[in-house]
Simulated scan of single mutants.
Amino acid sequence: MNSVLRIVTTLLLLSGCTAANSASLPYDAWRLGFSSPNYMEVWIETADVIDMQGIVYRRAMSGVSAIQTPPNNSGDPRGWPLRPGWGKGKYVTGADLPKKIFVRWQSLVEPQTYKMSIDIRDSTREIMRKGEKTFCAADGKWITGYRKAIVIGLAPGGIAKVWATGPCLTPIEITRVQAEVDPRGPYEGKAGGEYDSLSDESKAYVEKFGVPYGSWK
């Protein structure tokens, strides 16, 4: 087989795998998003996904989570929102629905590095596949919506809460996970134990009020 034919064959195989992986979804792709409580800044080193076909998607998401840092300590980081948003994230294009999600992140207010594995149950995937008639106030239309997003809230102490949600639909809580400390520290020990600095707003809040451990049930 010459090199050109080999490349074409490989591309066809990859495109076939992508089509097969996403065939069970009633939409083009599902989304993975992250958020954190006010001022409780985190840095996501990596979020890796294993889909139902056993294919691994490395760094499906990384970087900062969605967060608010209102000035003058006017925000409240305690507890989880009643209606969490989509968070900051990405679509996991070409993937089937998730089976496992692995996350390693830095809680910058402590500072501490955590890692965890989230098992996505069949019941969650059924929620993500099920269409639901809903009214979108933003454009005044009825649509068939899907909870095509997994949103993960990350809080100090290694607490994570997981929801399935979608446009114009009420989020459904999926699970709560207690992560474990990664003793290697940030970047698997490759950063010499150094963490990024907090923003001025987060630093001011933590210095005055501390971290409200125990509020993220």
Rank of each mutant, 00 (worst) to 15 (best):
Q68N: 15
A95Y: 01
G85S: 10
G63F: 03
N73K: 13
R78L: 06
V92L: 03
I67V: 12
V92Q: 01
S74P: 03
P98W: 01
K90R: 15
G79I: 11
G63P: 02
P84E: 11
N73Y: 07
L97D: 00
L82C: 06
D96W: 04
I67G: 02
S74R: 12
G79A: 14
G87Y: 06
G75S: 09
G94W: 01
G89P: 04
L82G: 15
I67S: 03
K90N: 15
G85W: 05
R83N: 10
R83C: 02
A66T: 03
A66G: 02
P98N: 03
S65R: 11
G94I: 03
P98M: 01
G79C: 14
N72T: 08
Y91S: 08
G85C: 06
S62M: 09
G87Q: 05
D96A: 15
Y91I: 00
S62K: 07
G94L: 01
T69A: 06
I67K: 00
G89W: 02
R78N: 10
G75N: 07
V64F: 12
T93Q: 12
K99Q: 13
T69D: 05
D96K: 05
I67C: 04
V92E: 02
K90Y: 14
T69E: 13
L82Y: 11
S62R: 10
L97R: 00
Y91P: 00
V64G: 11
L97V: 00
N72K: 12
K99N: 06
N73G: 05
Y91A: 07
A66Q: 07
V64L: 12
